[in-house]
Design a protein around this nucleic acid. Sequence first.
DNA 1: TGCTATGTAGGAATCATTCCTGTCTAGCGA
DNA 2: TCGCTAGACAGGAATGATTCCTACATAGCA
Lengths: 150, 150
Amino acid sequence: MKLDLQDIEARFRRHDVRLTRQRAAIYAALVETTSHPSADDLYRIVTRQQPMMSRNTVYYTLSVLRNAGLVREVNVGHDMARYDGNVSMHHHLICLGCGQIMDVMDEELNRLHLSSGQARGFDVLGHRVEFHGYCVSCQQVHRNVSPRRR
Amino acid sequence: MKLDLQDIEARFRRHDVRLTRQRAAIYAALVETTSHPSADDLYRIVTRQQPMMSRNTVYYTLSVLRNAGLVREVNVGHDMARYDGNVSMHHHLICLGCGQIMDVMDEELNRLHLSSGQARGFDVLGHRVEFHGYCVSCQQVHRNVSPRRR
DNA sequence: TGCTATGTAGGAATCATTCCTGTCTAGCGA
DNA sequence: TCGCTAGACAGGAATGATTCCTACATAGCA
């Protein structure tokens, strides 16, 4: 999704996040892609326009945006953290071959819940579903190539 | 679940894993607990009986057992990896306060699947469901105490 | 029992992430 | 519009879980 600066400013204001050039660039890059980039991917994208930006700023900004609820962290195995600019409830479909992550929007999955017996008194706030498999282009080779570690 | 050496030997043989003192101890510790310990937790448990065991051996053994399908890795956010000796299909309920992980066995959750439209040609091999919330003892304090990072 | 492929221990290396510190700036109030 | 100050940024150092390297030890077959 393409965002202009007005949109970003409005969202930041709504979530009480101070607007800076760096933050706007990082957030815009994240919302404009569906590829669930890592902090380092974002660093590489954003330094194309702002070569002075520090890798620390990317990490710090991502933690600010995450705490503000503007961004979500996605973890696949123990690979580096990846980020998602889509914070509406959704789930993920992950390729064990190339690591790509696709969004899954499905009302039924959103409605899953635990029986009270299973919940053991937990106050359950949310859930996530991950599907694992091989994408079309990895299917031909996945018997020959070992999956990514973890 | 309590395992004796015979059981372990049989399982290792079935999965083509060479039996050593170190491996038996690590695997036994993992199967006997329901707490989903980290590599370091296991190192601490196992060195009580075998003080010479190296942390590397724990990591290497866990990777051998994981590849053999005797052990499963559980990742919660970006905390250190945790391990599960229960490899039957099940899901997890995770406390955002103290980090404890409870097993959830539920046939309905096991049967989830994607519509072919959502699957985008993926060859889907499995899925995982994670529920997040606060356990009974963390519920009293969870408005005062900030959740563990991520 | 001896041989050899494989496992183990210990130490060094890796690398994503976090911490520290001095400088800079967004955005409020005057 | 200007000055102030809390909060943000950059750069470098530190951290810490995990992996790599290598020499020695051992499981388990012949």
